[in-house]
Design a protein around this nucleic acid. Structure first.
Lengths: 233, 233
DNA sequence: ATTATCTATAGATCTATAGATAATGC
DNA sequence: ATTATCTATAGATCTATAGATAATGC
């Protein structure tokens, strides 16, 4: 990540950061560089707003290398999505399992949402620039037909796990009401991950859309209160 | 709109739907057709995912006509945005004015959100296919750097108007808290307008993301409850 | 010997413009 | 006579592939 910038010093490098020894390492490292660059660019401009040349140029490498490592442009796009999807998915799955266990049959909406959302916010806040970009990338993808099926495939399981906890927390509330609640949650969540900067301008600098810590501090409880308005049957 | 499909009958047309009489009318009608087609396509694939040829083909006209009516691709994109922006903006502005007047110094969060959101949902639900497409288009735009400044320019006034009513409804709550609340609202709102279909699959058909009536019935109260969790100073 | 990277280039778009033709307007 | 639409085409990308060169691996 640190060396993504350009290539400042072609001179002698520090021992630890030397060119990778084995070919396998070299291959892996180049692929990571490509994925990092693609992730960043796709997060800004979407699938069609980025050319393979853009990606190659960003890491100072020839365009044809993109095709050596990835079948085609869409395969690269998919690879960006797939690289991190299982990580966030599994973390949240575990957090929900853990929460439900601790709740001993009495889960709350706020508790479930904290497990689901805060776990991810921690990742995006502390996982480095790559994870921040992935968040913005995901929020882009979530709005396009091209990406919708990737969401279905990789995130349906965690989301349905969340829904199941929410249903226990809200006995008597019909499932469709809970799905509507989730619909609102995911909209806000994706919007927050996009960190578009609009909030900064709108609020005259009072809030920064980059401030995920502030979002984390408010979102789960905000949404939990909303769930309480959904009508029982 | 009805004739957008292709051109089925080059035969004699019904009197009322005859080819436009004056050149001004013809010009206006062609531009509307172009804007309708562009609006639909941009809403699905974004600025870069649509070519001028795509737009031209959709209405069965030559690509060069795009350039005759619009300076370039981005100008067309902007024109799509600008065509309807003032309409939704003014409607909501009026609804907020009206609400505040009726509230006689005692506005509520729910009341303000109903005025702001429901007014728009009515438009998207009852304004015809074009308005539905515009909603999805807007939600796409709201997530891109290219479109952010358009949002700032055209929608900041209504949003700040909403904020001002919310502040009256929430005395003692610092403005930044209210901006965060709005941040959550707009995320859910834009997501709802995108009508991506993911909710349909996720919920196994229990909910349809196309069902704006269901969204309207729940969203304002859901969010209003959330605002109550924002901390006073 | 095998794999990583680059050079060169084909073929397919895409945007945009110049100039021709067809349809209204006086 | 002016405006709407089409034909033809230039110039600029963009994706993708074939084949050359440079760097590791036995």
């Amino acid at each position: 990540m640190a060396r993504t910038k350009k290539k400042k010093k072609p001179a002698i490098q520090a021992k630890s950061k030397k060119a990778p020894r084995t070919k396998a390492e070299q291959r892996a490292e180049t692929m990571e560089h490509i994925l990092d660059a693609a992730e960043y660019l796709f997060s800004k401009h979407g699938l069609y707003g980025v050319t393979l040349r853009d990606v190659a140029q960003k890491i100072g490498v020839h365009t044809s290398l993109m095709h050596y490592y990835f079948e085609d442009k869409f395969a690269l796009f998919t690879a960006v999505f797939v690289r991190r999807a299982p990580i966030t998915s599994e973390r949240r799955m575990k957090a929900l399992d853990q929460y439900e266990k601790n709740a001993k049959g009495k889960p709350t909406v706020a508790g479930a949402l904290h497990a689901f959302l805060d776990t991810d916010f921690d990742l995006y806040m502390n996982g480095g620039a790559g994870w921040k970009n992935y968040g913005a990338f995901g929020s882009q993808v979530s709005n396009t037909p091209e990406g919708a099926s990737m969401f279905d495939e990789h995130f349906d399981p965690v989301v349905l796990r969340l829904i199941s906890v929410l249903r226990k927390a809200l006995p008597g509330v019909p499932p469709e009401e809970i799905f509507w609640g989730y619909h609102f949650v995911t909209g806000s969540f994706m919007h927050s991950l996009s960190r578009s900067g609009r909030l900064d301008r709108l609020s005259g600098g009072l809030c920064k859309s980059d401030d995920l810590k502030a979002v984390k501090a408010r979102m789960a409880d905000f949404m939990a209160a909303g769930f309480m308005t959904l009508k029982k049957r």
